[in-house]
Nucleic acid binder design. Sequence first.
RNA 1: GCGCAGGUAGUCUAGUGGUAGGACAACGGCUUUCCGAGCCGUUAGCCCGGGUUCGAAUCCCGGCCUGCGCACCA
Length: 570
Amino acid sequence: MLFASSMSEIMEMLIRRGFIWQSFEIYGGMAGFIDYAPLGNNLRRKIENIWREFFVINERVAEIDTPLIGVEEVFVASGHATSFVDIAIECQKCGRVYRADHYIKDKLNIEINSSIDAIKEILEVYDLKCECDGNFSEPFSMNLMFSTNIGAGKGKKAFLRPETAQGIFIAFKRISNYFRDKLPFGVAQIGRAFRNEISPRQGVIRLREFNQAELEFFVHPREKKHSNFREVADDELTLVDKFEKVHRITLSKAVERGIIANEILAYFIGKTRRFLLKIGIKDEKMRFRQHKDDEKAHYAADCWDAEVLTSFGWIEVVGIADRTDYDLSRHSKFSREDLSIFISYSKPLVVKIKKAVPKMDVLGPFFKSKAKKIAELLEKIEFEGEKIEIELEGEKIKLSNEFFEVKEVEEEITGERVIPHVIEPSFGLDRISYAVLEHSFDKDIVKGEERRVLRLKRWLAPIEVAVLPLLSKEPFTTKAIDIASLLRKNGFYTDYDDSGSIGRRYRRYDEIGTPFCITVDHQTFEDDTVTIRDRDSTEQVRVKVLDLPEILKELMTSEIGIENFGKRFQ
RNA sequence: GCGCAGGUAGUCUAGUGGUAGGACAACGGCUUUCCGAGCCGUUAGCCCGGGUUCGAAUCCCGGCCUGCGCACCA
């Protein structure tokens, strides 16, 4: 069973009402996997769409979708194949398992790159023992990537991606071309990623298969700015720097004082905060924490996590990293592809250089068929002095100044090739969805009874509107079914429910966060009006059925009160 | 992966060798009709595998899952 003994009230509700379920439940379950049940799936999709609004539609960003499986080369280049594999050692006496590099650094203060042989040697040379004085077993590797094979037989070694980002980096040439080779631009990807966690815990917080929304925003290495920074510059937020000093400060001041390294990092921190607020994360339960130097991933130059306070404590929900040119450089090196971009200078640089201009009339007769190639090489060489030595097909050829003329020429340099740096805001959608649910979960007292109500932002509600006949009989039921159908045709996620008393039904929809209930009552048959009930206040107003779609549209996309749309009921 | 504690209907829980009980939820009916009302009825359960025993939800062993602590979380 999921979260058995101390199952929190909210977890109980999420499972019972169909937000999340344990995967593989009838076969005993498997830690680290969850099913998105109907309501949870809808909620996550809505969060994804708002993320798109923030990080795709309103940025110079395009979204792509690349395979979940990656061939081995990708992760060798990215560094995951080596640094994602931890070497572990197990004590033969007490059975404790340590990460070998951590244990060696801790006990011997030796930095070590994790290879089995290197660790084996250290264990032998220093006769390292466990804290309980037991001997260690042979070091073994714990690969945190799921591996698989492509094709028949032994096949080609491949891994399930541990992040969506690599699919973006390896498509960089195409992407850059798509953006007409002009920085800055970004590429987003929403999808599953996989980590074979040793011991997944805390329900949805650490999963083996999880949902990411990642943005890789490529910028010029010397221009780590964003043209829209002023939009968030005055936002005040809580920062915890790498020395654990807490600042309540605006983003512009944080950049001025060097707490945040550059403007674009600050921009995405601000944008992330706005996004989290939009989906209902509470400002006072949100902070941004800078990674300490020993905490950063192998690729990151600087990294800030958005952390959210939940019943599990502060949990990391977004990582905003400056990955510099690490990934593109590595893929460039391993694939032998040029992953740089040509950047034109605003004004071409004019430089005077000395050039050797070949005298073909001397070169030709002397070197015969080699003359042309020699001339080509000569023109490429930076020249100084009287004599030049060049190498042609392994043969060294000395050329004295009778073969060329030295000219000082002005050359225009119109630009340079640079490997862009990448700023990566990486969102853990599962954790975010869970945090939203926790921050929305509330109880109040209505007429002396405790009421459980999920105060989701209206635009996140999995069921947007419920149509309820006051009485579970004709003609109320048919009328309510008709209205439900009208609302569905207008694109609303609509439930119809005639089971139990009206109060019981209101409670059902309060519990899953449905913001509005439409009630068909006696008066409906007199003047074609219904009541709209507001989840948060339980207040009702009476409106015309014909106006319902328009009114609901306005209500669902804003936070204005229902009293603006009709006369109060009762 | 180690240690501790658990696993009984959808949910919560009682039962600790001999017919598995309740509450809530759900569903049907009657009744009521604007905030979890009432009555009647129905559906539905001992995590999986092995052992001990005449007999196991209960005792033993192994596994899986959940929670907590340690470790891990690039």
